[in-house]
Amino acid sequence: MFAAVMILLVVSGSFVFHFMSPWRATPVASNWGSIDETMALTFIITGAGFLAVGLFLVYCLWRFRHKPGSKADYEPENARLELILTFITTLAVVILLAPGLLVWGQFVTPPENATQIEAVGVQWSWSFRLPGADYQLGTSDVRMIDATNSLGVNPSDPRSADDLIVTDGELHLPVNKAVKVLLRSVDVLHDFYIPQVRAKMDLVPGIVSYLWFTPTNIGEYEILCAAYCGNGHPQMRGKLIVDSDEDYEKWLHAQQTFEQTRKAQQKTIKVGVN
């Protein structure tokens, strides 16, 4: 009796908590509202399953608790029932999976017209590189990193010179324009994660990974690292600022190109030597 009541409280308490909880996903600020919809569908289907099994369990505990003289049934199996349950479960799984895979299909195919930019992770900060006037990023390799070239951009690639280098951890993007973020790490695994954007992906040294999204709301968002990367992992923060087109242009013009940063750093190094 007590057990049935307690388990009823746990099961129903879970539902009360779910609906009362002030802790829910941040408002989405990208095109990935479809991820939220898939999750909402998952909540409905799995919630129904949890409730059905949970309440059935509670009913059995209450109804078939031991009383003097009571005796259990003997029923080794029931092929029909097992078949029906298999069918229902498979159906539920397919309903969950099919829309999920469709959205995943979108997730892994960035639109043709997406602007390519690059996010680079280093213990424990973020840098960015945006294409310059040629709309193209030069090649890069961590082996080219030196005091004047913290991101390892290839100086002999003609497309590199006008790339814009952002090292203060603050990335601006124009609103409503699809962007494909190429992800690169110079040391360990990191993960580019903006809760409001929903998308996230690891940065892996040695390869270039990517994700894409379209920011839909002007505003300021935090970039976190979601892959454990050593002692400074929680402090590895950046900022995404989604601008109107005008503000974005203004910011863009204030950034330095690869050539400029390199020259400036070469100068400071020389000054240092003298």
């Binding site: 879970s14 991820i35 799995t46 999920g100 998308a199």
Partner: peptide
């Protein structure tokens, strides 16, 4: 019985994390 309830709950959240796109926002949280 405690196992049944916790396993039911944990099994269900596995459906979130297994369904690749739903895992994207939840992974590593």
């Amino acid at each position: 019985l405690g196992f049944l309830v916790t396993f039911l709950n944990g099994g269900i959240t596995g459906l979130y994390l297994g369904n690749v796109i739903v895992d994207v926002p939840l992974s590593a949280t």
